[in-house]
Design a protein around this nucleic acid. Structure first.
Length: 985
RNA sequence: GCGCGGUUAGCUCAGUGGUAGAGCAUUACCUUGACACGGUAGGGGUCACAGGUUCGAACCCUGUAUCGCGCACCA
């Protein structure tokens, strides 16, 4: 750091050090290392994704944990990678295909389309990885994984086959959440309930009696999408005068109704059970084809709507259950793409479901059966990805019965695995208690193909002498031998691969060195929004697949701690999203403010477990802080001298001891905060220590020991007038002593005793500065990796360290430890030193305030007089003078101030600002009156407490003492202020 | 409906029983040996409300209001 610029310029520093770390292999984890292991697996970002603020928060935390662990002497593996993100990626490529070539994926065919996706992946897959590097993430890139890597895919298939063989994976025809836009089934977790404004339609249907043969509708077996309706059957239909009113939000599904249900306990309707009603659509059918039964079902809530429910088993989950109970037929009237099919009738055929709803309502109106149409808001399930209402649909899908559920619940409930903050444990437990089987198949092309093959056998002489096909199914890692096998066309849910992430990235199913060393991982850092999608499932997978004896694990859980970050929102509290355009581009912020600034600002505003309102001001603060750090180091550098000299206990000033004690406190505070995952607390403590304690007080005070460098005649530095070698620490309250500024050329010849003393003092101060800075920089490193590495080398703090402990890079420099008793004894660091110096600084603050009250401009040099109440060293006098920015400080124990001289009082003594007749009596009166009021109020509070006998009897001794002491202090101040006020007259 | 979280300075938020804090914003002054991305000193809060426990409550308990989130088959 020979030439140091005035302001910190991150751009020139960041790439340099990142390259250096990579070249030196600083991020590479060694499974053979003897050091204790620390590991994290990254929540793999979508391979097509772009870095957003959520990633910044998430990955900065992981990087802080990783870097801290390295400094603690751990062998660290932070394992990175990306997720193939089935739907998201496929949609993105399809969109591009449509835009650039006006083609759909079907135009290309499966194979060709997948080629295109891989091309896209190769082209864009690195983007987010490079963005993470810009942020400073210390991931072991030599182990980067992708969920569609060949080895990873083998793991997915193996897991499928194993679970299939255990009977936990099965295929079945079920009601699933169908996304008409992406035309695939979705899991329950991918459905987001959204309130939607619509209408509740009330319409009436006529009750009919069936004479003779009952309608086939109530007894026929299930049918689906058959070209001819089978509900036709010759009967005699007698219309009655009774009408039933039905409430629905989905009139377009009327053609799919196969019953009307009432609660059997409902006195209004119970007697109608067994009769029929005339279904209104499709209108073109004959009356007897429109007959549907009235059934009784307990699930009908007679409080809701009219108490009469139309039952559409093919298009509603509840209706499907009712239909199953009553063996109702299924009539599917909506196609996979959300349009109406032929069975919906002539009026609706071919229409989109929402358009069809309007037409159906028109029809009802036309039939004069529409009783009411009122605005209504209800919750509708939306496809999270495509943002369209999902359609409950009956289809053949693969399902997983979740494994190891009880173990997974227990490990969190019993505390082997800790959630931070722990309230998420309850959410987790609740979900695991109520889970239903996971629909894992997706009708997509991009993803892990289901490892199942089918072929048909034709068995002659089946039913009624016809040849019937029989399906043969094979599940395995390889395609089976023999003719005619065809693989299942579906792929697996993306999360069915991500749930294996903690071990599939480490060489599973082999018991590799990496797994042995780094599994279970130490910490997982993720957002609570994927607690079900990912976290819970990983825990289950861990127990299911890592429990085997070959891994020799006492507990197969995938991680010991889960840290849930907040969600980053914008200033208005809205979730950041692409569509809203309210998400700033972190790379722009990095370019503008620097990666360290972005990290620091983000961490400072992200308390444990709370959402974060992002404000660019926070990043600005981070930048300002980096600049402060930079300039504090620049100041040290400008003093020259040996780097990291010996600290001589004999030469320590009160200020030196004060800052060392503050450093000790900061080390404790920051270390504790980090152990508890309280990053904003750690950041705040560092900020306060460095800016408010070190820069604002210590650096300023140290200037008393650092003679101003005077250009060419730098050797002619002056001792203070009246001060001689050996006088340090002398009591000076018995003589009037004036400390003047500015220092003037040394009257003594160079090499004189005073000169030697000054030089030694300076060296000692520089040693303290170096000590504090080298500790502070190390504590900042996990938060601010780039600037700290630059300063570590630039300041020369790396030079004396062993190569693997900070000599090469600050990354492996030891994390500062709180001072032990020996250290404190050696440098006589006692709390009393700290308190006295704090009082000194308090005196300075009050003294500065006098200047303001007297309306004296900050730049104007003034003379203060200090009347000490106890001995004061000449050094302290000099510090007070400097901090007051005074022209001179007269220390005079016998000072008799002119009446009305503004003054302040502390336990150290009284400080006066003699104004030589220019006292602003009015202003001073106002100030003092206000002060008296304030003090009196405080005294009243304390006195009231002390007057209470139950207080004095019950309170702990320390608290009592503290109150008594406080009272004495306030009383002293009050007396002082009152006297001053009286003197003003 | 059930569960969770929030309500503290103009704004964003810390603060888990003992003198109400930070950053930003704001007022005044200042280019004083590193930093104007800076310095100095201020102003600004009956800690949402009502009860209770306690010598003492922003903090613990009960209830209310209000905002947000999650879960839930109400057509």
């Amino acid at each position: 750091m020979s030439e140091i610029s005035k302001a910190y310029e991150p751009q020139s520093v960041e790439d340099k050090w990142y390259d250096f770390w990579l070249k030196q292999g600083c991020f590479t984890a060694d499974p053979k290392s003897a050091k204790p292991a620390y590991s994290i697996v990254i929540p793999p970002p979508n391979v097509t994704g772009m870095l957003h603020m959520g990633h910044v928060l998430n990955n900065t935390i992981q990087d802080i944990l990783s870097r801290k662990a390295r400094m603690d002497g751990k062998e660290v593996l932070w394992l990175p990678g990306t997720d193939h993100a089935g739907i998201a990626t496929q949609m993105m490529v399809e969109k591009q295909l449509k835009k650039e070539e006006r083609l759909t994926r079907h135009d290309l065919g499966r194979e060709e389309f997948l080629k295109r996706v891989w091309v896209w992946k190769e082209k864009h897959g690195d983007i987010i990885i490079n963005q993470l590097k810009k942020l400073g993430c210390s991931c072991d890139w030599t182990r980067e994984r992708f969920t569609m890597d060949p080895e990873y895919s083998r793991c997915v298939q193996k897991v499928f086959v194993e679970l299939y063989k255990k009977g936990l994976i099965y295929r079945g025809k079920r009601m699933v959440n169908w996304c008409p836009a992406s035309q695939t089934a979705l899991s329950d977790e991918e459905v987001e309930m959204k309130p939607q404004k619509g209408f509740m339609y009330h319409f009436k249907v006529q009750v009919a009696e069936v004479v003779g043969q009952a309608s086939s509708l109530s007894s026929s077996s299930s049918i689906k999408s058959q070209p001819d309706r089978q509900d036709a059957c010759p009967t005699t239909v007698l219309l009655t005068d009774t009408w039933l009113t039905i409430a629905t939000t989905r009139p377009e599904t009327i053609p799919g109704d196969t019953a009307v249900a009432v609660n059997p306990k409902d006195p209004r309707y119970a007697h109608l059970i067994g009769k029929h009603v005339i279904r209104l659509l499709p209108a073109e059918l004959a009356a007897e084809q429109k007959l549907i039964p009235i059934i009784g079902d307990e699930q009908v809530d007679f409080e809701f709507g009219t108490g009469v429910l139309k039952v559409t088993p093919a298009h509603d989950k509840v209706d499907f259950e009712i239909g199953t109970r009553h063996k109702l037929p299924l009539i599917e009237v909506i196609n996979a793409d959300g349009s109406m099919n032929d069975l919906a009738g002539a009026d609706l055929r071919g229409l989109d479901r929402f358009k069809a709803r309007k037409i159906a309502v028109e029809k009802l109106r036309e039939f004069e059966v529409l009783v009411e149409e009122k605005p209504y808001e209800n919750n509708v399930g939306y496809s999270q990805r495509a943002d369209v209402p999902i359609e409950p649909r009956l289809s053949e899908q693969w399902f997983l019965k979740y494994p190891a559920v009880e173990q997974s619940k227990a490990c969190v409930a019993e505390g082997q695995m800790k959630f931070h903050p722990d309230r998420w444990a309850k959410v987790y437990d609740h979900w695991l208690t109520n889970i239903q089987d996971w629909c894992i198949s997706r009708q997509l092309w991009w993803g892990h193909r289901i490892p199942v093959w089918y072929r048909y056998h034709f068995i002659p002489g089946g039913l009624q002498g016809r040849t019937t096909p029989a399906l043969e199914t094979f599940c395995g890692l390889e395609m089976p031998h023999g003719e005619g096998w065809e693989q299942d066309t579906d792929v697996l849910d993306t999360w069915f691969s991500s749930w294996l992430w903690p071990f599939a990235t480490m060489g599973w199913p082999e018991s590799t060195d990496t797994l042995k060393k780094f599994y279970p991982t130490t910490d997982l850092v993720t957002g609570p929004d994927i607690i079900f999608f990912w976290v819970a499932r990983m825990i289950m997978a861990g127990y299911e697949f890592m429990s085997e004896p070959q891994f020799g694990l006492p507990d197969a859980m995938p991680f010991k701690n889960v840290y849930f970050t907040g969600i980053i929102r914008d200033k208005q509290g809205r979730k950041m999203s692409k569509t809203l355009g309210n998400s700033p581009d972190p790379l722009v912020l990095i370019a503008q403010y620097g990666a360290d600034a972005l990290r620091f600002g983000t961490m400072r505003s992200a308390p444990l477990g709370q959402d974060v309102l992002f404000d660019e001001k926070d990043v600005e603060l981070g930048r300002n802080f980096c600049n402060k750090l930079w300039n504090a180091c620049r100041f040290r550098q400008m003093q020259g001298g040996e780097v990291q000299g010996e600290i001589d206990p004999q030469l320590l000033t009160a200020d030196d001891k004060w800052i060392l004690l503050k450093l000790d406190a900061a080390i404790r505070e920051v270390s504790i905060a980090l152990n508890e995952y309280k990053f904003s607390e750690a950041t705040a403590a560092l900020y306060r220590f460095f800016w408010n304690e070190y820069c604002d007080w210590y650096v300023e005070a140290s200037k008393a020991s650092l003679p101003r460098a005077i250009t060419t005649e730098a050797s002619n530095l002056s001792p203070l007038e009246g001060e001689r070698a050996g006088e340090r620490g002398d009591e000076s309250s018995d003589v009037s002593q004036v400390v003047e500024a500015p220092p003037h050329p040394n009257p003594l010849p160079p090499g004189g005793e005073g000169e030697m003393q000054k030089a030694a003092q300076k060296a000692s101060t520089l040693a303290v500065i170096d000590f504090v800075l080298s500790h502070a920089i190390r504590m900042f490193h996990p938060f601010l990796p780039f600037i700290t590495e630059e300063l570590w080398h630039g300041m020369g703090y790396s030079t004396d360290m062993p190569d693997n402990q900070g000599g090469k890079t600050i990354m492996f420099a030891p994390w500062p430890l709180p001072f032990d008793d020996d250290f404190k004894a050696h440098y006589s660091l006692e709390p009393s030193h700290h308190d006295q110096t704090s009082t000194k600084y308090d005196l300075v603050v009050q003294g500065r305030n006098l200047r303001r009250v007297a309306n004296i401009q900050a730049a104007k040099k003034v003379k203060y007089v200090f009347k000490p109440a106890q001995p004061l060293t000449s050094h302290d006098a000099e510090v007070i003078k400097l901090l007051l920015n005074a022209e001179a400080l007269e220390v005079n124990a016998d000072y008799q101030p002119p009446k009305g001289t503004p003054s302040v009082n502390t336990s150290l003594g009284e400080l006066f600002l003699p104004l030589e007749g220019h006292i602003d009596r009015a202003a001073e009166t106002v100030r003092l009156t206000k002060e008296v009021e304030k003090i009196a109020a405080e005294i009243a509070k304390v006195e009231a407490k002390l007057a209470n006998p139950s207080f004095t009897q019950k309170v702990p001794a320390t608290v009592l003492q503290e109150h008594q002491q406080r009272l004495v202090e306030w009383q002293g101040k009050l007396a002082h202020a009152k006297t001053a006020l009286e003197e003003l007259g």
